[in-house]
């Protein structure tokens, strides 16, 4: 290491610490964006972290179409594909949130968050930053799934505006739903446990819906669950937008669920984060 004389430029403790250029929400947003940038750099360095928003939904799409498609839609695989793609988008969004909690838990275990906590930034900034970075993953998911599905023969029955609207609703839903994963990531001890808890939650939600089959074939008690399931309603909106049909009812439900996730899970996640020493 060089001699202490190299120091003066480096530290001058009497100099004011970096002045806040702007206060309030704008500054908090800038910090969150800087931290989102960090998450994106990490994703870019480990492309395998995108498997759950690319190859995995593609494999599901192929499997379900060719295994169940023939049986479920009376031999009309094309019709089943049209039905399945919006559903699989819903399931993939729920599954894609899992890695957020896993990554955050990992950050905490490794002590990186100690550094952030000792900085003069909003306590919520690291969490909000990580959530914002996930927008990129959901964009990749939507575009990849739509592209791959169209190669398999899926056709949007409406127009580009409806496609964009479906993208908007999907991302909005994803950004609220993923706070459950953030909460679990703060609350349990290890990244593996985050995954375990989240799968327990996501699998009943994604299968106990009309993602794969028409709920009319299910027993009444399960239909009651399907009818309130947030995934059901998200998929309903996307089906309506991409294939044509009514969306208002499902959209209202979805808006309600988005508000519910934000109002309940954001504060809970922040509290769990603050408590975690």
């Amino acid at each position: 290491m060089s001699t202490p004389t190299a120091l003066p430029a480096a530290t001058a403790p009497t100099a004011p610490t970096a002045p806040a250029r702007t206060g309030g929400p704008l500054r908090a947003l800038r910090h969150a964006l800087a931290l989102a940038g960090r998450s994106l750099l990490k994703t870019a360095r480990t492309p395998e972290a995108l498997i759950d928003v690319t190859i995995q939904p593609a494999i599901f799409l192929v499997l379900f179409t060719y295994i169940f498609g023939g049986a479920l839609a009376a031999g009309d695989r094309g019709a089943y594909l049209q039905f399945l793609v919006p559903g699989l988008l819903g399931q993939s969004i729920a599954l894609a949130g899992v890695s957020l909690g896993t990554n955050l838990n990992n950050d905490i275990t490794k002590g990186v968050f100690d550094r952030f906590r000792s900085l003069p930034i909003a306590r919520s900034a690291p969490l909000v930053g990580a959530v914002l970075a996930d927008v990129a993953r959901y964009l990749v998911l939507f575009c990849f799934l739509m592209g791959f599905a169209s190669l398999m023969g899926f056709r949007v029955q409406t127009g580009p505006l409806e496609l964009l609207a479906a993208l908007g609703v999907s991302v909005a839903f994803a950004l609220s739903f993923c706070w459950i994963s953030v909460l679990v990531g703060m609350a349990v001890r290890t990244p593996g446990a985050v995954q375990g808890v989240m799968f327990l939650l996501v699998l009943p939600l994604s299968f106990g819906s009309d993602v794969f089959v028409d709920a009319a074939t299910m027993p009444g008690w399960l239909r009651a669950f399907v009818d309130v399931n947030p995934i059901t309603h998200l998929v309903g909106v996307v089906r309506g937008l991409l294939l044509g049909g009514p969306v208002a009812g499902d959209l209202a439900w979805t808006g309600g669920w988005i508000a519910f996730f934000l109002v309940v899970f954001v504060p809970l996640a922040l509290r769990a984060y603050n408590r975690r020493a």
Binding site: H31, R38, K110
Partner: peptide, 22 residues
């Protein structure tokens, strides 16, 4: 325990802290 971000480069680690310090 050195709390640097292993996935970022040395310079990215420090620039991030600088950005968070406004």
């Amino acid at each position: 325990y050195a709390s640097v971000d292993e996935d970022l480069t040395g310079v990215q680690n420090l620039v991030l802290i600088g950005r968070l310090l406004d």
